[in-house]
């Protein structure tokens, strides 16, 4: 499997999916009008990855902004990770939020209550 590296733009995040380390990173802004197209390769990559994953998968999500169109796609990404958990693999989602950013923390907690994967809420302090 190959590493997937999508460079960030003002509307879309940097995405790095590394099959040899099991580290998945989504970082930056995710505010495209229609995010299905943007997240399609990410979901497809995960479909392959979960067939032959690392024993430990670490997912780092650090979003500055994300719109509701992206929130559905992020949920789809997380649902793929539930499969890893079901197959007894270790997986953790690190959800980063800026100090005092209640909106971003709540968004993480919303996912945590829907997705059966351990979450860690991490506050970014300058």
């Amino acid at each position: 499997m190959e590493l997937l590296n999508i460079e960030g733009t003002p509307k879309t995040p940097t995405v790095i999916l590394n099959p040899s380390t099991g580290v998945i990173e989504i970082k930056g802004r995710s505010i495209p009008e229609n995010s299905i197209e943007f997240y399609r390769p990410v979901v497809e990559w995960l479909d392959e990855y979960i067939k032959n994953p690392q024993p430990n998968t670490v997912v780092n999500v650090q979003l500055e902004y994300f719109n509701t169109s992206s929130s559905k796609c992020v949920l789809d990404v997380f649902k793929k990770l539930e499969v890893l958990k079901k197959n007894k693999k270790d997986v953790i989602i690190n959800w980063y939020y800026e100090e005092d950013d209640e909106d971003m923390l709540e968004a993480g907690e919303d996912y945590e209550s829907i997705i059966k994967v351990p979450f860690k809420m991490i506050q970014i302090v300058d």
């Binding site: 009008e33 509701t68 169109s69 559905k72 949920l75 829907i114």
Partner: peptide, 26 residues
């Protein structure tokens, strides 16, 4: 509102216009 948001997020598919039905709730 939080519960309504989570319900729509988890249960509604994208409309043909690409919206997720979450905008106003958000």
């Amino acid at each position: 509102l939080k519960e309504f948001y989570k319900f729509v997020l988890n249960n509604q598919t994208f409309s043909e216009k690409g919206g997720g039905g979450l905008g106003l709730i958000d």
